[in-house]
Write a protein that binds this DNA or RNA. Sequence first.
DNA 1: CAATTGTATCAACTTATTTAGATGTAAGCA
DNA 2: TGCTTACATCTAAATAAGTTGATACAATTG
Lengths: 101, 101
Amino acid sequence: MIDIVKISQALSDPIRHKILLMLLNHKECTSPRCPTDLVGVCNCEIMEQFGMIQSRVSYHMKELAESGLVTEIPQGKWKYYDLNKEALREYIKELGVIFQL
Amino acid sequence: MIDIVKISQALSDPIRHKILLMLLNHKECTSPRCPTDLVGVCNCEIMEQFGMIQSRVSYHMKELAESGLVTEIPQGKWKYYDLNKEALREYIKELGVIFQL
DNA sequence: CAATTGTATCAACTTATTTAGATGTAAGCA
DNA sequence: TGCTTACATCTAAATAAGTTGATACAATTG
């Protein structure tokens, strides 16, 4: 079941909002370090894209994952993220239902 | 223009969420103090419904009004609030557009 | 197996949000 | 006009959220 307040909270931070958009439009990670041919965006990309340190990225990705907006895909040492469009769809659907739109 | 982050922020507080639902299902204020036959919910109702002091209600209603989710209707000494469904509709529409749902 | 790499978590700190109580202001009423 | 009522705003305090640097840990690599 969807938690409207929690998802709203996750969406209410400008950086998380940008990260979600990045996940949406992601291309394969070009870093030679990362395994290629994987779905999702890796932490290193997010760090580079926004000039954020690792623990900060980790914190925000955890928030997003706990809200359900993002799916975590651990790959050995690495961790990838995928936008959970279905959660977003349920969120807007639920808003429509409870506010009778 | 809709500010997704700001509206998400407004929605991300449990009390504000409840207030919005109250505005949605409001009936006429039964308090003998208030002028009748007015659209909207008055502050006194919100205070009573949630057992909140006046300054707290004032704070949250300002947040909601500034996000655009709520319309303020001053009536002399009183202030009434109306749920702005159109803002909610634009919010979910915009989410759909930017996240390509 | 030792060194390296990627991520998680912790503790300390900073910043933002929420709350309560006090005070201000303007409208309505005796 | 003076009193009361409804709401706004300010200040201070409490709580929550976000940031950073340090440390821990597990997977990978040489």
